[in-house]
């Protein structure tokens, strides 16, 4: 490979996602004057926050070489636990703790089935997708739970210095999760397991334990997203979060995380989630029908994965 081709490929990998987002913004800016306003920008980020938070867990899972299809159902289930707790008068802190605990534990159950039961991640989380959805429907008898205290709702409706709290939440989540992924032993092992599980095991790493924890992180992220969604809508729906796994996978992959594992970053995923959000928002502003929107978003996802494959160096 000649020098400039290598440079181009490296640059493509690093800046492709950011460049793609900027081009998209530029196009939307020329097409509609409403796009580039502070109000709309905050709106996009707020809309994106739920998907962005779910995608934090998805990024951990995909870097470790797995996939988590149960995130949307876990979100619904933790949301219901939260809502029922609030309704039962547990108090906001305890209800929140219970929801986060349930999300994390359900995620750990996913991980245990995969790491210790040796189930393929696709199958285990597909099963859990149905289990958690069923549990949410069962507990609520299929009905939404709504009407919470203003104190709880301020989680999503509050703001600091004019910045809506979901944005602050999201940025804090990304900062924390990024530090864990890049600075801790756990984070390094996540990359190792995704890059070469056997070599990581032979280096004395407790692969099964760390794999289990990765899915716990994903469950926890879904539960955090459930807090925000429930507070924003003032309702917890047992049918919330349907198809959220697709959005989270799309954000992660658009952000440059390799579906074959071992490579990726949360910074990329944040840009990927924003790209999805900007695209949705732009199509709405342009009055594109929701049917056509689905089609366009699917094409973008396929395009992102194709581009990634083209820019990627061959792995032996």
């Amino acid at each position: 490979m000649s020098g400039w081709v290598r440079w181009f490929r490296g640059a493509g990998r690093r800046f492709g996602t950011v460049a793609g987002l900027m081009v998209l913004c530029a196009i939307l800016w020329t097409l509609t004057p409403h796009f580039l306003t502070v109000g709309n920008a905050l709106n996009v980020m707020e809309q994106t926050s739920i998907n962005a938070i779910v995608a934090v867990g998805m990024t951990y899972v995909i870097i470790s070489g797995g996939i988590d299809l149960s995130v949307g159902s876990l979100l619904a289930f933790s949301g219901i636990v939260l809502a029922e707790g609030l309704k039962a008068g547990w108090g906001t802190p305890l209800a929140i703790a219970a929801a986060l605990f349930v999300g994390a534990v359900t995620g750990v159950a996913n991980g245990a089935g995969i790491a210790f039961g040796r189930l393929p991640p696709f199958i285990m989380t597909l099963g859990m997708m149905s289990v958690a959805r069923g549990a949410a429907l069962l507990v609520t008898d299929g009905r939404p739970v709504s009407g919470f205290s203003p104190g709880f709702r301020s989680l999503a409706t509050g703001q600091a210095l004019g910045v809506p709290s979901p944005i602050i939440f999201t940025l804090a989540m990304y900062a924390g999760a990024h530090l864990v992924l890049s600075r801790t032993r756990f984070g390094r092992y996540v990359y190792g397991i995704g890059g070469n599980e056997e070599a990581t095991r032979l280096s004395g790493v407790a692969v099964r334990f760390h794999k289990t924890m990765v899915y716990g992180v994903s469950g926890l992220a879904s539960a955090v997203a459930a807090l925000l969604l429930t507070a924003r809508l003032n309702t917890a729906q047992p049918i919330a979060g349907i198809n959220y796994e697709l959005d989270a996978i799309a954000a992660t992959v658009i952000g440059g995380t390799s579906l074959s594992g071992g490579e990726g970053s949360l910074g990329g995923t944040l840009v990927g989630a924003l790209t999805m959000g900007v695209l949705r928002n732009g199509l709405n502003l342009l009055g594109v029908s929701s049917f056509l929107q689905q089609l366009v978003i699917g094409v973008v996802i396929i395009g992102a994965v194709l581009t990634d494959a083209l820019f990627k160096e061959k792995r032996p």
């Binding site: 390094r188 990359y191 190792g192 890059g195 070469n196 070599a199 032979l202 790493v205």
Partner: peptide, 15 residues
């Protein structure tokens, strides 16, 4: 069985 090819030299030594 030996190396994590996606990681760096330092990270492989560190594993």
């Amino acid at each position: 069985d030996g190396l994590v090819l996606t990681l760096s030299v330092g990270e492989n030594i560190g594993l």
